[in-house]
Write a protein that binds this DNA or RNA. Sequence first.
DNA 1: CTCCAAGACGCAAACGTTTGCGAAACGAGG
DNA 2: CCTCGTTTCGCAAACGTTTGCGTCTTGGAG
Lengths: 359, 359
Amino acid sequence: MTIWGNLGKRLRNCYREGVNEHPPPGGPAPMADVADAAGVAVSTVSRALRGRPGVSRAQREQILRVADELSYSVSASASRLAGGRTGAVGVLVPRIDGWFHSTAVAGLQERLHEHGLDLVLYRLQGREERAEFFDRRAFRHRVDALAVVGTTLTPDEEGLLAAADLPVVGVSTRPSGRPFTDVDDHAGAAGATRHLTNLGHERIAILRSTTLLGTHGAVSHERYAGFCDAMAERGLEVPEAYVVSAPWGLEGGAQAMAELLSAATPPTAVFAESDEVAIGALRTLRRSNIEVGRGMSVIGFDDHQLAELLDLSTVAQPVHEQGRTGGDLVVEALDNGRVAEPERVLPTRLVVRGTSAGH
Amino acid sequence: MTIWGNLGKRLRNCYREGVNEHPPPGGPAPMADVADAAGVAVSTVSRALRGRPGVSRAQREQILRVADELSYSVSASASRLAGGRTGAVGVLVPRIDGWFHSTAVAGLQERLHEHGLDLVLYRLQGREERAEFFDRRAFRHRVDALAVVGTTLTPDEEGLLAAADLPVVGVSTRPSGRPFTDVDDHAGAAGATRHLTNLGHERIAILRSTTLLGTHGAVSHERYAGFCDAMAERGLEVPEAYVVSAPWGLEGGAQAMAELLSAATPPTAVFAESDEVAIGALRTLRRSNIEVGRGMSVIGFDDHQLAELLDLSTVAQPVHEQGRTGGDLVVEALDNGRVAEPERVLPTRLVVRGTSAGH
DNA sequence: CTCCAAGACGCAAACGTTTGCGAAACGAGG
DNA sequence: CCTCGTTTCGCAAACGTTTGCGTCTTGGAG
């Protein structure tokens, strides 16, 4: 400890104690207070808190103790400004209400919180909201990394993200060249389809769902491909009338099902790309007095909370865990600059309930 | 314009153009770049961007135009550090998955986004998570205001928030001395109860729901009081066996209903404090082959998405709009330092469906 | 005892913005 | 032409942290 160092501290303390006995309790205690209390310089406090080398064990422990006593927490703003981290991660969702996205975000939040990271929620709903987000790039000042949840980025959007030079991970989506976690939608859809063919069904329709933008996302394409491949395996044909697209949700499913029922030869089973759509279809079937499970089999995808209640057969995917895994990816990218297994595909599971039965 | 001012800018431009033709495209453009491009000082840019007086109309417009061309956005960190705003609002929720909270947050996000505010999500789930949040108070460095959504704060927690000196608003909760928005739970519950008594029911039970902490929140107390008052109005008694508490959710409701069915004299109608609980009760009734609407009437509270699907009578509350109104409160508090109508009670609406019928 | 290397720590310069204060410019009145 | 007031704008000092660099300390070898 240098003479000057001590002197400096003395002077500061004199000032503090003499002129301004009680520091205003309003503002957060700055790092300088911790330094004073611990009898070291702010630079040492900073190094101790960030786990940087150049601080002796004893000092480090003492500083951590003092910081804890003062319930000190670093100013994210100042830290970021000086070249450090903000300690926050941006999460991009097309919407936050709705089962899938809120569950995935909950899983993400869980992991991020374990690592002391805050979560900034960005909603990308509608074209101009997306455009504004990627154009302004205000997130660069606020977050250390981004997690994209359940929405497919356009090449343009990916390009703009790349310019920001932040780690980006995908949850239930695969941004090109980035780590991601999702499920094997193709295999899941194929499994559901095989389940129906194994029950003896041959005339099987598919209810496809579109995003808020009215297009099919990558997930939809995968599930459709899985369906088609499984049908082809068995040498079964899929007439054009058996492929119906509807906006995601109950209403869409209900209408799409009505359309199917008006076909020249209605199908005997239906695979819906999502449970919400399947449930809408169920409603139409109930209202048409068609006994589900006997007259018509239905299977969905997701294992939505409602599926169990309504006894809907489905392909379960671990949504909460996808969120958590996404959190892991972010944390690893932030800690090491890279992630070990950048492609984490979680398993799906066929859940057979009452709405699918033999023909 | 002073000679020195122009000279300063010239020198900077020379440097930039000569030595470093293309500024590194990675980092965000600082305010100085906008100042240079507009031919003014950074202080003027700052004032123009924040709408402060002391800038001529012409300059202000030109600066805004230039800033837009450069797609400039201020650094939240630097702004905050220098005494400005972070442009972010913290949202406190007990959980983010689940219909009520995610819908309210969606409404909040909508309004905040309209006013250029970002949303930082804090989850307060479990006692120690709450304690840690209020003890560290890390949010002070990150957000300009807080919105508490759907959870009751303890007096201690309110005290710690007060020390942080931030605007705080409540959504579906009433932090003492703070602006809030919610619905009249007492009146809503009383209305539901009167609906049942008007149908001729006299033996009416109530399914109360507890929070994640196992306690009854303020909302639960209000709804219970509304139920009791409406019963008292008609001179009807509420035996102890007709008041059952269960953890919030399907399972809790299912178990609580089972308990009621094992009473010496089962009730003829049930008011559930929330739709989730009511739906759990419906499941038990269906499994017991008790015809809902004839043998037993059920009414819930919330108008959950499922209520319509399951034909559940209920008291509808505007969740999304509560979120939006909460956003309004935050924006007004931030803009004016105070809000005009700090208590915004939105209307509930009795929705009669198939599960409630005469006795 | 002297010298040297390595480890521990302090100093000070950034980072990008906000804002009080002072100076310049301009117009009007004397 | 001088003075004064008003408006517009630049200067520079914060804000709290990080980090390169320099200095001091410590302990061991020569």
